[in-house]
Design a protein around this nucleic acid. Structure first.
Lengths: 223, 223
DNA sequence: CCTTAATAATATATTATATATTTCGACATT
DNA sequence: AATGTCGAAATATATAATATATTATTAAGG
């Protein structure tokens, strides 16, 4: 297990441990199936065992950690089945968020989307796929952020945290990126035209396709 | 606060406290906004403070409890906005679960639905609205249970726990029940015919209508 | 080789205690 | 009278030391 670095100060120690562990899990620093020994984490982060256990409880509720009573505490493995089920939900919710965002559109929102898609075009031309990937995530986030439903945002964010652990290191092909750009343009057009149902459908299709390509190319090794 | 009764034995005390508190909150025994004093719960249930706090952390992650650091622990209030947002998501997910359940249909499933709708018809004729309400919940659960996505089931169940706190005591009108029966029949037909998109759409419409009627008649008193 | 008993490791739980934060009331200031 | 500050009380949060429960592992015995 790599070193855990304690981030910005939080309200309570339990929260600090929580975000530290969560970040480590989501980033892939703590690998699926890896064991978490509470007192080690405690001493490593300079706290007692209790706040660590509270943090673990939260992460368990979020599905990022699995605890069998009195036994091991493990970073959740993400089986292919889990990934498929979670991604399926995610696509639906992202589609709905796109629908709501379209209903909630405004000038600044559209401007932001245009800017981002231009940057993405540039990064493609520069063959900077890492940058493209970052911008892609940001593009989607920008859309979902514009939907007026805080709970939906949180759910998408939580689902993303769980599913992107598998996708983190997966690079799309250039062909995929070209198609992706075209999809994004179509989505923006639909949003700009206030065609909420269309935008939703396009987003679902776009994400489903990306998902299908990922699943064809990724090897799940557990369960 | 009413007496908390400790339910079936659980693997850990934290889990016991968790399900005890959750049941009390969902059932309305612990009211929204009501304060939860940890050590009182601890002594009341005959445990120390730590497992109570762990339970509280889980409930906080689920949105049923709100904690401000070093300050009060409260049963979450459900503002009208929260209710609307959560219900909106719930409708989408229930629709999708109906879609998946239709894709996953089988003889027993259809038989179960038929049986339940017959019982509901009977309870309507007997004017037993309490029974009808129970059967209604069961009917919907039966559908969602038949979708092959465990995470989706859990999400719907969690959303239901949060939103039904407000709906618990709300009785539908007889007119609504008649319409409801008709809706259910249409949904079953679509499921039986394997028309997944239709079943999804009908379920969403059905739930949205019920939601709209509820919102027209219910007074939210907070926020 | 399989089963069982002992052991180690660790999660879970308790108790007592200490610290931190918010809330609220008393008192003072303006 | 309104406001603001201080202090006390209540309670959440955290620690430490310790005890118990459970699982996994090892060792012993059939």
């Amino acid at each position: 297990m790599g070193d855990l670095h304690t981030p910005l100060q939080c309200k309570t120690k339990a929260e600090m441990i929580y975000s530290t562990l969560r970040e480590a899990i989501v980033s892939g620093d703590l690998k699926p199936g890896e064991r978490i020994v509470l007192r080690k984490v405690a001493s490593e982060l300079g706290v007692s065992a209790i706040p660590v256990r509270e943090a673990v409880k939260i992460l368990e509720a979020e599905g990022l950690i699995e605890v069998s009573a009195h036994s091991e505490v493990l970073v959740s493995k993400l089986s292919e089945k889990d990934f498929r089920q979670l991604s399926d939900i995610r696509v639906i919710l992202e589609g709905h968020a796109t629908f709501l965002a379209t209903k909630n559109t405004n000038i600044k929102f559209l401007k932001d989307l245009e800017n981002q898609i231009n940057k993405m075009q540039t990064s493609i031309e520069k063959q900077d796929f890492r940058q493209y990937s970052k911008l892609n995530i940001l593009f989607h986030q920008t859309i979902y952020e514009n939907c007026d439903n805080d709970h939906l945002k949180k759910m998408i964010s939580d689902l993303t945290a769980r599913t992107d652990r598998a996708r983190a290191l997966f690079a799309y092909s250039p062909q995929r990126n070209t198609k992706s750009i075209a999809d994004h343009n179509a989505i923006i057009r639909a949003i700009a035209n206030g065609e909420a149902e269309t935008a939703e459908k396009l987003m679902c299709q776009h994400q489903s396709e990306g998902l299908a390509i990922f699943m064809e190319n990724f090897k799940f090794d557990n369960q």
